[in-house]
Design a protein around this nucleic acid. Structure first.
Lengths: 132, 132
DNA sequence: TATTGACCCTATAGTAACTTCAGGGTGCAT
DNA sequence: ATGCACCCTGAAGTTACTATAGGGTCAATA
């Protein structure tokens, strides 16, 4: 498998794969005669794991830890639990932040009558108290 | 007003204020004898506007545009409307992405019995289909 | 008066997780 | 042989700041 094939299979950009290799997340594959990277099935599996974790919002640092843990099949999954639980808390925080922010924006957009900037409720919502 | 005062009033770090100046978001203030920046009320207003916009999740690029628009009091606020509306769409997308992601994580954490990695449902959720 | 401490200055580099760019090689088909 | 899609490396760019190094200013205190 060449890097482009792997990229297509995992919906990852070629540059990102090379970046993961440089970061040590994926082992350096062997090369063919033309110095092209040649990937095996194990690479595909590992990269899929990384991409799925990233899609779920884990940082690369967390992915690094998860990969180490995942390799140790007899160990307890307590640590994995902890990472996931912390991540959920983080996501919940983000969701409620965004929801609050959304409501404020919708409010000012709703009140805006589309007239001049001087009367724009959105700009008003952004301006400090003493500018109003 | 010295930079530290302005920082306190707007809940902004001193470095961030200097960064905004370098980025042209805030005009360079005059300096006192000791080469310290001296700020006026107009700076406070402008920085407050920027911070509030950032808090609402607008990018600095969007803030730049909003500032330009806000200065033009007779213009129509149509463009402001558009930016805000697009931003809301973006936020909604983020919220639903995060919600989906949260549900998937909660599911796998709930199913996890805290035994070995080999049986860990969280790791399973991350692994590609053929690894399961 | 000397010095301490809080504050200010500039310029540069670092952060996360990539993406883009410059400048070039490989391999296959026409 | 030449065009084209694909591959290579190394360095720099992206966003929105934050941190660091190395130094100056100023008011109050010993």
């Amino acid at each position: 498998m060449k890097i482009g094939d792997l990229a297509k299979l995992t919906d990852t950009r070629v540059e990102t794969i090379r970046y993961y290799e440089k970061e040590g997340l994926i082992p350096a594959p062997s090369r063919n005669s033309g110095n092209y990277r040649v990937y095996e099935d194990a690479h595909l599996k590992r990269l899929s794991f990384i991409r799925r974790s990233r899609d779920l919002g884990f940082t690369l640092e967390q992915v690094r830890t998860l990969l180490k843990l995942a390799d140790n099949r007899d160990a307890s999954c307590m640590e994995v639990d902890t990472i996931a639980a912390e991540h959920i808390v983080e996501i919940d925080r983000k969701i409620s932040d965004l929801t609050l922010l959304r409501d404020q924006l919708v409010l000012s957009v709703d009140r805006c009558q589309g007239d001049t900037i001087a009367d724009c409720k959105i700009i008003e919502a952004l301006a400090p108290a003493r500018m109003k």
